[in-house]
């Protein structure tokens, strides 16, 4: 399992563990944190699952499409990612995630 700390838009902190193989988007959604819309269902076609992620484990590099979609968000930061593009893996260090403001 991968340990997650997710701060939602109201500032509430959610600590939970999620199964490897899920995407970060799925794990947040399934936790009942409803700030993430993920309208395209995780196909990297929108940017409605924008999060800020910090982790002790380097995350997989982002694709050009993800990079471009993040460029279209108004609140991009250095640690911006689309949660649907991060797959949880065994041995990952805990992820610290803040859900980005809505565009």
């Amino acid at each position: 399992m991968v340990e997650l700390v997710v701060i939602d838009r109201a500032g509430a902190e959610h600590k939970f563990a999620a199964a490897p193989g899920m995407t970060l988007m799925e794990s947040i959604r399934d936790q009942g944190i409803y700030d993430i819309k993920s309208l395209c269902g995780g196909s990297c076609s929108c940017a409605t699952c924008h999060v800020y992620v910090d982790s002790g484990t380097p995350l997989a590099a982002m694709s050009e499409d993800e990079d471009d979609l993040l460029d279209g968000t108004s609140e991009r930061q250095a640690n911006s990612r689309l949660a649907c593009q991060i797959t949880l893996a065994n041995g990952m260090a805990p992820l610290h995630v803040i859900i980005a403001p809505e565009d």
């Binding site: 050009e64 499409d65 471009d68 979609l69 460029d71 279209g72």
Partner: peptide
Amino acid sequence: RTKDYVAGKT
């Protein structure tokens, strides 16, 4: 061509 899509939306 996601770059165009993102720029085009604006």
